[in-house]
Design a protein around this nucleic acid. Sequence first.
DNA 1: CGAAGTTTTGAGGACCTTCAAAAGTTGTGG
DNA 2: CCACAACTTTTGAAGGTCCTCAAAACTTCG
Lengths: 251, 251
Amino acid sequence: MSNSLATSHCLSPPLAKLERRGRFSSEARKAFLAMPYQRQAIETRTDIVREGERTRGCSFIESGTVSRSKLLPSGGRQIVSFHIAGDLVDLQSALLIVADHTLRTHEPSFVVKVSERAILKVAEDFPEIGRSFWFDTMVDASIFREWSLNLGRRSARERTGHLLLELGYKSEAAGLSPRSEYRLPMTQLDLADALGLTVVHVCRSLKWLREMGLLHLDRTRVVIPDWDALAHFAQFQPLYLHPEGPRALAS
Amino acid sequence: MSNSLATSHCLSPPLAKLERRGRFSSEARKAFLAMPYQRQAIETRTDIVREGERTRGCSFIESGTVSRSKLLPSGGRQIVSFHIAGDLVDLQSALLIVADHTLRTHEPSFVVKVSERAILKVAEDFPEIGRSFWFDTMVDASIFREWSLNLGRRSARERTGHLLLELGYKSEAAGLSPRSEYRLPMTQLDLADALGLTVVHVCRSLKWLREMGLLHLDRTRVVIPDWDALAHFAQFQPLYLHPEGPRALAS
DNA sequence: CGAAGTTTTGAGGACCTTCAAAAGTTGTGG
DNA sequence: CCACAACTTTTGAAGGTCCTCAAAACTTCG
């Protein structure tokens, strides 16, 4: 748990993500990077934020993989999203007082924590940053809507394919890998919890996708040999990720 | 389609919703109500915004009921949320350039449309309003997460009960009715599209809930005779609606 | 009053789950 | 570096939830 100070390149991944959608002024950039933070190395399968607890600061992912999940009293778990390097995975803690879901790592990760106050201040002082945060929350919401569609209206095989396409797409957008070949640190049980299925059926769905030539799996490596074929099968259209970025401001 | 001008009480329902979570300064309130708008009467089952189209202005609900839904190329439809009087149902159009879902009325409704520019300006000029918008988007996102849990991990009966509890809760919070007795303008087909089920199975689920004494249905009227019993059965906990409101600003 | 839409019921079938166990992989300590 | 334990993936068999197809009863609206 090292402390702030000095050249804060730990905040670069989230800044880069925000700036993919539109450049900031250099003052805004400077103010963003000047936020005090704490950097933490988190090991695999460790909770960063727990459902029901009061929020304390906003966590960004510098590197690694994190999921958001919700628990049912009866024991069921639903993963509602996966996040990778650069994701502002915990922006909601800036305004929401109590966490409605759990954040947990799926591989050794580095997490950068900034106080809510600093987030809210930089959002207020630099409206371009405030809008960028708001836009990020909107895209998040859009992704949740797509997951509802996935869970409610797609078959297990389509659902599985769709998730793997989304992960590839986001990985490429974050500059981590080509979209059709990436590392997948999640177990099939994790995938099952994200897909609203059982491990057994995820395994069978993956097997079917492999047999159809739509997918190659090698340990933790996903290869999508024909992106368009799988995208067609799973009805994947990246519109919901809003790659077009936010509305440009007219004068 | 009457025009702006004069005392704008059409914007009162959305303003009231925002102020439930924390009062605005009188200048902020005045600026909010001073936004130019268009008021439209929309008949039942009419699209306000269509998936894939460019966004043009933000719609608020003055009165009525509206759903958000996404379509599958294969014809499936998934409703991802329902909205009632006061809901800022279309805030995302302020920043998202192309709509990722459709907004449609479920009863005759009055909708108030404000330009994105006016929204962004009032959010910038009054940070308290900007934060309030952002908070609203966050709560929206939280509700989508809960729907993912609902679709992925609850049985048809639990799912159905959970939705009816959410609608009652929101209806009471909006000051429209007691939570355990409200009007439901949606058909069972609509509920099916929201629950990821078929009409047939929604009908059977409702029948079962009725037989268990957890629910009374009288035409368009829902009565929940024992709120706690149904809430226990459906594992409904309103935490995800964040009734506690946004973080109060220190200093 | 007739037409269109909505709700309800029945019967059969499909998709996904549950339970169980084997095979394969990863991590740890001796 | 091997041995062993814990975990993960895979396969099989049986069963249940939810779907499909079909049609009747009921409601709404012009």
